[in-house]
Design a protein around this nucleic acid. Sequence first.
DNA 1: CTGAAAGCGCTTACAG
DNA 2: CTGAAAGCGCTTACAG
Lengths: 335, 335
Amino acid sequence: MATPTIRDVAREAAVSVASASRALNGHSNVTDKTRKRVIEAAARLSYVPHSGARSLTMRHTGTIGVVLPDLFGEFFSEIIRGIDRAAHQRGLQLLLANMHGSPEETASAIRAMRGRVDGLLVMSPNVDCDFLAANLPGGLPTVMLNGHIDGIGHGSLSIDNYAAAQAMVGHLVDRGYRRIAHIAGPIGNSDAEERLRGFRHAMTELLGDANPLVFPGDFSEDAGREAGRSIAADPQAVDAVFAANDVMAVGCMSALEEAGVAVPARIAVSGFDDIPIARYVTPSLTTMRVRIAELGTQAFETLAEILANPHGAARPPLTLMPELVVRQSTMAAPA
Amino acid sequence: MATPTIRDVAREAAVSVASASRALNGHSNVTDKTRKRVIEAAARLSYVPHSGARSLTMRHTGTIGVVLPDLFGEFFSEIIRGIDRAAHQRGLQLLLANMHGSPEETASAIRAMRGRVDGLLVMSPNVDCDFLAANLPGGLPTVMLNGHIDGIGHGSLSIDNYAAAQAMVGHLVDRGYRRIAHIAGPIGNSDAEERLRGFRHAMTELLGDANPLVFPGDFSEDAGREAGRSIAADPQAVDAVFAANDVMAVGCMSALEEAGVAVPARIAVSGFDDIPIARYVTPSLTTMRVRIAELGTQAFETLAEILANPHGAARPPLTLMPELVVRQSTMAAPA
DNA sequence: CTGAAAGCGCTTACAG
DNA sequence: CTGAAAGCGCTTACAG
């Protein structure tokens, strides 16, 4: 009644455990007759090998661990799509974990990966580096999905948030907008902070505005909505909004609409990421396209190369440059 | 240089492996002094326990396997959200796998779970039951996410697709629509087939139309777009479209718009699922809300109960009834 | 080609 | 309280 093990199969086929193992794994040093007997016995017992034991012996697991801030939502869903595509192609399984926002949980998620995966993909935009370094199992190849951090990981990818934010401000200025406000991402989040820095820099450079309006935010739709309400309360102060991600941009647009402020006729709105929803909202959203899935794929490929060639040279950090996608939400010139 | 094991910790602390294990796991039968020495040694070596070995010994893994048709996209992303929420609350990890559309890959994904997880959540809307049954590791508690199948799994959830499809047709008829077409889901997909069956039944019952127009589809946006183009070619033939899921409804709407057919003024469109995007599109989409995340949560809870009480009575299948959500896409009465 | 044995990294009765 | 030993389910040199 209990789940059958390879011993049960061996007994059923009247061979040794060693032969059963060899037959099941398709080794050549086994007679056809033995192989047949073993395979039939396994089928009879509905034997499924215990992957845990198998990987303990073989010292590799055939699975890759992925630690992300979240496992769902438009952005992370796209990352997973990209990782999954690459993993599937190489025949590897995925063990996904969520950090649930706390450093302790991030650490425990990462620690739980030890012995279950051959390598790790980690995106941890707001966890302290030293803390992270202390909890990464030594010897486990790791690729960081959010920028290079000295001494952490064996490879890294990053988005050029700083340049991209400047490009977005450049676009808005080209369109004639002058009173541009920013909705910031979470404090302590490196992506968000770079976007803010790029925004400030471009505002100073292009418009001589060293102290532009910045609303606090946390990448959530509600935060965008809240900022939108503040902006609607004094619509003269602002003629364009650049949100640090698309989700907040969408929230902001919906608050502006509710308050009767036309987008883009009275206020333009733009975002960052190009999540799938960006082209469905009305007006469709101008944004910086990150090619999110590709970020996942590339990170995976980097890891796969490290796994295939563990003693190769260190990978240089890869930087992806987002691309401006102009849609309707920034199409009207301001009054 | 190699990853340290508990033997290294024991040696470093000058105690036996047994004591090291006890100290690390917080057992009480260890002196404070020993515990302190062990913990310090572990920290010095950056020791992280090998979860694979640990679960082999302890005969449980603290993780739940999840096998879904896909790991990304609006629908599955919501399921994962729901599962993750529940898993987190109970302190369990998630091992996710994708079936990549083929029965062979589904089987191998499921088999790979053996020995890595304590239980399984499987949503397999278009894989043959016998095949599935043959590949489910015996003894591994399994909850099916798409309907009860005799002899498979130890619990199941399902959506009342049949009744829900009828409810949607009822809504369209109430609004005055008469020439209602359906965009079907993939052949062999049980959810899709039930929705089609419900559609046909309601069309016959409510309108005496025993042979309504049905376009083929596969749940993809492209399929919806294709159907939309066909409909736009002869817009008199149809005054409302009921798509078997939201993604196809969205595709259909965009094709209709492109062809200059106003939605809902000339043709109404409705979907199924209530994915997050449904309320963002313009016009916003009337649909049957599935509470997708809740489906995941409930499935997880069912499994958790089975795990906590393995010899309890069999769980009765749970059926969720979707709820009609009326939005703008069906708001105009037909001409 | 086949089998007995060691070992992967842990935990836990069993003695002491 | 502590340690030596067995065992979780596999695979793979090592002999034969």
